[in-house]
Write a protein that binds this DNA or RNA. Structure first.
Lengths: 124, 124
DNA sequence: AGACATTACATGCATGAGCATCTACTGTCT
DNA sequence: AGACAGTAGATGCTCATGCATGTAATGTCT
């Protein structure tokens, strides 16, 4: 196989794996928990051990593959659903702290099983 | 590492690779040739050797990771740009044949270099 | 032939995403 | 202190996509 064909093949494989898993995740997270994949991934970051308390919108942007505007709206969506709270940041009043609510922890814990099931099924 | 953490790591890696490449492809294809990634991938299928002449919208749906409606609009977009033609299918009058125009071949040939450059840079 | 399910494609609608821009705040330099 | 650049986040706009549905053609079953 030529070098070009090899590259294309690698990319198509990547695209194919990604699409299958992403569509499936989206489907089951939406149906089972009312979350988009981005919603779940953001919640997941909020609840990771390293992030306890220190998470600002910008931190989420840095960790995820989303634009700042998309992240802002994701947080807004989560807040609207009562899964997170937005709070002013004392040390930098431009910043916004995002903290999970009890409901957020609960939904995340439930969705985590669904999420891992899909991953196990497609990557296991 | 636990099995769960292993799965998550694999997924995050996949997501990360995909996002980086897809964003970059989208950026350069859009800037250089006015094409979305889906536009390019569709054109590419139309011009592949196996597909000479026999490509219908449904064939593209089968080969790509797009819904039928998205594919329909992608073809409409390409037609609007003068890169493909839609024609009736004689044997099945529900079907629509899609064929590349000369402009379509030209744009595809130019975009192919851009596309392969990005792939080489990220996967090479 | 007539009825009904199925398939191919188009389209209205809702939504998530990126870009550009706006506001508010911080930090730096003079 | 005052000016100005840079950063954090929100928002208007546009667009690609998926779902549900509509239309037209085909296939099947009686």
């Amino acid at each position: 196989m030529s070098a070009d064909a090899e590259l294309i093949d690698r990319w198509r494989t990547l695209l194919s794996q990604y699409s299958r898993i992403a569509h499936e995740l989206d489907r089951v997270l939406q149906a089972g928990h009312g979350l988009t994949v981005s919603d779940y991934e953001a919640l997941d970051r909020l609840l990771s051990d390293e992030n306890r308390g220190k998470v600002r919108v910008q931190d989420l942007v840095d960790e995820m593959h989303l634009s700042q505007s998309a992240m802002s709206r994701t947080v807004a969506r989560l807040e609207k659903c009562g899964l997170v709270c937005r709070g002013m940041c004392d040390t930098d009043r431009r910043g916004v702290f995002v903290t999970p609510t009890e409901a957020g922890r609960k939904v995340h814990a439930e969705a985590r099983r669904t999420y891992l099931d899909v991953l196990a099924q497609h990557l296991g």
